[in-house]
Structure formats: structure tokens, C-alpha cells
Nucleic acid binder design. Structure first.
Length: 533
DNA sequence: GTTAGGG
DNA sequence: CCCTAAC
């Protein structure tokens, strides 16, 4: 297990900074914070994560920080989960020292100070132009452009699935890796974050039940990061996906990262509406951000730099075309008059509502098993992110605890995947000889299907099943392409019905399909119809 | 290996 | 859901 932490085995981690609330309480401090951030980043090896407990400390250590220190702190922070025993202590200590903090992954070579944001933005813009100008020229390098995520408070999601694009620009998926890293009894229990730190991309979405509740993290692979409200589009070959502000990186799955680091930050942009969480604690599997801005400037970059929001991250390739690209998504919410960035309060709560980071972490490892292509990646990442939780019992995902199950109801998935509490991995088809038992589509599955169709259109069942976006594939793992097709057929049949009929039908227990969903189905039907012409 | 359709 | 023809 320790081997996981071994230097050569550990993929590069994002540099992390932890910043206390005060840092962002006013412009001045933010600026210096930025500087500190830059300094820190500039002076440390990209491969040496440098967690910093505070700005002060950041600046203190940045100049002379040596690798050892960095690594040590890193382990203290990220590897905490490895040492369950030490975790508790660390946790306590942290609670005392920092009641509110957050991670701020740092770019490896950010410009200093305020220019930070603009520079990044420019870079982003440039790259974006490139991307859109000659999509055919997209090469691996570009795909390695990176990803990032913003750690900022956001509304809790009530469904593992995102809402229609009109409502939410981004969908955020819970990252099992993160959950593992931060939730496994470490001092940074995921469940304690109102908002998650950045996450590495998920090449292979985790099984549904791994969409651990309690953390809403961004999973924006190959993309830019969105600040609250503001967001930048993601370069993507699938225009369709882009237009929906949904990133589909499934096409890039085969690529592999050598170093993954993200950086993200930003502040300020936290809109007033994104502060409170809306769901009950931890009932969230994914959070999404309502980004009205999205539709307004789908491809635009966040404009306002009034607040130093920046998110970026660079990824370098192994074959080292050393093209560490930075992506930024800065921008404050329009209309957010407050000059000063809003405080982010990522509270550390002592209670560990939903634990089993253990199983989850192992799941991460299992993830490697599960996915063939991305195995390497997954493995790697799981090493890093999952923080080496002694996941020995990989193979199958450890069944989620019952307690989770209840919550899982939200994600519907969990229940789906494994209803055999604690028992064998009995997947409903069991019964050696018997035929498949009728297992009705859950709303989540249905939503996933609809979303899949939205992204790829009908008749792309096989592909839809692979969509990693918002865990679609996870939700649909138990459904065959034919199933999808059949279900879609049924959906369209129903959607075709007139409202009146629908209404009378609504009394029936079988029609648990939200009218809203049916309407979107209808839309998609027509859309497909039009396209067919 | 997938998809379209009828059963 | 199953089965199968047709890709």
C-alpha cells in the first residue's frame, strides 16, 4: 500500500494550496494571494504538490520550500486517507487551525499577480480560437489541454443527473477519486466540503454507487473550468455536446495523462445564489451549476475580471510535447456588484456523515480493473487521488453500505447497481437459467437515456452507453444498447401522446415519468425528425 | 458488434 | 424483454 505513495508510482499531483477565508475577503489580499499562488507555483516542481495551509505559510515556504517539505505536506494532506489512524488527529488539528479553507490547485507556471487571470484567459481564448478554427487539427496535444475545476460553493444537486442544458450549463459529477481522497477519514473529508476541490478527469466513470454523495465535485475533463455562473466552453469534437455545454470526453478516453494537475481557483465569482446548498446534506451526488451565462455566451469566455477568478490547469504529456496548457475560466458573475470576492466557506465538519471512503477508494482501484483502456490511467489516478487507500479487495466494488443506500435513492443508481445489500454482487440477471427479471427503468436511467439522446441523438445507443458525461454510462451500465433503443421507443410513444391522454394517464402508477422529461423527449424526437430531413 | 422492428 | 434480420 505504501508503494502507492512511492515517488515513482505517484503521478504528479496538482499543486494544492489551501487558503483560508481571509485571503479572499478583500481584493488586496486576494491579489497577494494570487501572487503567493504564483510564487508558490513558480518555485515548486509541478510534480511536487505543495499544499499550503495558509497564504502566509504559502509565501513563507514557496521560495525555499524543498521537495521534501512539499512532499511531506502533500502526504499529510492528500495521503491522510492512507493513514486512518493519523487522520483523526490531523482532522482535529485542522479543525482548530482552519475552520474554513479550500484547496487551490495551482498552475505550474502562472503569471504573477493580477495578470494571472487575464493571461490565462487570453491563453484560453487563443486556444479556443484554435480549436474552433481548425477542429481537424486537433491533436493529442490539444486534448491534453487539461481540465480544471473550481472550488466554490454551489447548490446541491438533487439528482445525479444534470438538468437540461437550459437550466444548468455544467453538470458536476462526484468524483469517486476525490471522495476517496478526501473522504476517507482524512482531515479533508469530502462530506465536509460544501464544494469540492478540483478533480482529475474521470476517464472511466465509476459505477453509479460510487457517485458518492456528500461531495459535489467538478469533473470537467479536457475542459476549462467554470467559475460559478460563468463558464467557458470546452473544446470538444462533439459539437453537439459543446453546444449543450456539456463536455463529452469519451472520445478522448484513450489518451493518457502523465501528469495531471489542475489548478483552479477563483473566487469572487461565487454568486449569491450559489452560496447556500439546497439539498439536504450529502444527498448530493453531483452538483450542478446553474449557468444562465452559458446560454448567453456559450463560447465566450468569462469577461469580467473584476475579481481575480482564475481556474486553470496544465497538463503535460508524457511524450512531452510539454504542452502544458492552461485553461482558465475566470469571470465573476455578471451583475455581481460586490467588489470583493465572496468568501468561500468550505467548512470542515466533524461529522462524517457518509463514510465508507474505504470501499469507495477501493472502488477507484477497481475502476482500473473495470476499464480496459483507461486502466492505466485509472490505476494511476486512483493511486494518487484515491490516495492509496489500501484497496486490496478490489475486483468488485465493495458494496455500498446500507446507510448509503438510503441516500443512494437519490441517485437511484446505487440501488440499481447493487440491491443486494452486502451480499454477493448479485446483479439482477442472476437466476442462472431464468430469464431476466423485469426490471423497470428507473427515472435516473431514463433521464440518462434522454440526456444521452440529447447529446448524440437516437440510434447511437452503443455510444450513449459509453458517454461519460455526468455518469450516463454508469447509469446505463445495466442496460444494453437494445434496451436503450427499446426504452427510447417506448418513451417516444408516450411522449407522442397528447397532453390530455397524458394527464389521464398520470394517475397510473406506471407513469412516473415526469411530464417534463416527456416533453424533452418530444423535443428530441422532433429534433431528430428535422435532422432526418 | 450494432441497430431496427416485430413479437 | 426477446429474437432476428440486416447492416
Amino acid at each position: 500500500m505504501n508503494s502507492l505513495l512511492e515517488h515513482h508510482h505517484a503521478p504528479q499531483l496538482p499543486e494544492l494550496m489551501m487558503i483560508d477565508d481571509e485571503c479572499s475577503s478583500d481584493h488586496a489580499s486576494v491579489d497577494s494571494w494570487m501572487v503567493g499562488l504564483a510564487l508558490c507555483a513558480g518555485n515548486s516542481s509541478p510534480s511536487a504538490p505543495v499544499p499550503i495551509a495558509s497564504r502566509a505559510r504559502a509565501q513563507r515556504m514557496s521560495p525555499g520550500s524543498d521537495l521534501v517539505d512539499s512532499l511531506e505536506s502533500t502526504q499529510t494532506m492528500l495521503g491522510a486517507s492512507l493513514r486512518q489512524d493519523a487522520a483523526a488527529a490531523a482532522h482535529q488539528q485542522l479543525l482548530v487551525e482552519q475552520s474554513a479553507m479550500r484547496f487551490v490547485p495551482v498552475a505550474d507556471k502562472p503569471a504573477a499577480g493580477r495578470q494571472f487571470a487575464t493571461t490565462l484567459t487570453q491563453q484560453l481564448q487563443q486556444q479556443q480560437q484554435q480549436l474552433w478554427a481548425e477542429p481537424s487539427s486537433l491533436d493529442d496535444d490539444l486534448y491534453h489541454s487539461g481540465f480544471g475545476a473550481v472550488a466554490a460553493s454551489q447548490p446541491r444537486a438533487t439528482s445525479p443527473l444534470f438538468r437540461p442544458p437550459q437550466e444548468a450549463g455544467w453538470q458536476f459529477q462526484a468524483s469517486p477519486q476525490l471522495a476517496s481522497t478526501y473522504d476517507s477519514g482524512s482531515s479533508f473529508s469530502a462530506a465536509t466540503w460544501d464544494v469540492p476541490p478540483a478533480t482529475l478527469p474521470l476517464h472511466a466513470p465509476p459505477p453509479p454507487h460510487q457517485l458518492h454523495a456528500g461531495i459535489s465535485s467538478l469533473d470537467i475533463p479536457y475542459g476549462y473550468v467554470a467559475e460559478f455562473g460563468a463558464q467557458a466552453p470546452l473544446p470538444c469534437l462533439l459539437r453537439r455536446a459543446v453546444s449543450d455545454n456539456v463536455l463529452d470526453h469519451s472520445v478522448h478516453q484513450q489518451h493518457h495523462y502523465d501528469t495531471g494537475l489542475l489548478a483552479s481557483v477563483a473566487e469572487g465569482g461565487v454568486g449569491e445564489d450559489s452560496v447556500g446548498s439546497q439539498g439536504s446534506e450529502g444527498d448530493t451526488v453531483g452538483g450542478y451549476q446553474h449557468a444562465q451565462h452559458a446560454s448567453q455566451q456559450p463560447l465566450g469566455l468569462p469577461v469580467s475580471h473584476s475579481a481575480p477568478n482564475v481556474s486553470l490547469l496544465g497538463l503535460e504529456r508524457s511524450n512531452s510535447t510539454v504542452r502544458s496548457q492552461l485553461h482558465a475560466a475566470a469571470g465573476s458573475r455578471g451583475g455581481h456588484s460586490a467588489a470583493s470576492p465572496r468568501k468561500l466557506s468550505l467548512k470542515l465538519k466533524s461529522q462524517r456523515s457518509r463514510q465508507p471512503a474505504g470501499p469507495r477508494a477501493s472502488a477507484s482501484a477497481a475502476l482500473a480493473h473495470a476499464s480496459h483502456r483507461p486502466a492505466r490511467l485509472a490505476a494511476r489516478r486512483s493511486v494518487v487521488l484515491a490516495a492509496a487507500t489500501s484497496s486490496d479487495d478490489d475486483e468488485e466494488y465493495a458494496p455500498a453500505s446500507e446507510s448509503d443506500m438510503s441516500e443512494a435513492e437519490v441517485s437511484g443508481v446505487a440501488g440499481e447497481v447493487r440491491r443486494s445489500g452486502g451480499g454477493s454482487p448479485a446483479l439482477r440477471h442472476e437466476s442462472s437459467t431464468g430469464k431476466k427479471k423485469h426490471n423497470p427503468w428507473s427515472l435516473n436511467e431514463t433521464e440518462a437515456l434522454v440526456e444521452g439522446v440529447r447529446l448524440l441523438g437516437p440510434s447511437k445507443w452503443a455510444e450513449i452507453k459509453k458517454l461519460t458525461v455526468s455518469g450516463i454510462c454508469s447509469l446505463l451500465t445495466n442496460r444494453s444498447a437494445v434496451d436503450l433503443k427499446d426504452k427510447w421507443r417506448n418513451l417516444t410513444r408516450v411522449a407522442r401522446l397528447s397532453k390530455a391522454v397524458l394527464k389521464s394517464r398520470s394517475h397510473k402508477s406506471t407513469s412516473d415519468i415526469p411530464l417534463e422529461l416527456l416533453l424533452t423527449v418530444k423535443e428530441l424526437m422532433e429534433l431528430a425528425k428535422v435532422e432526418a430531413e
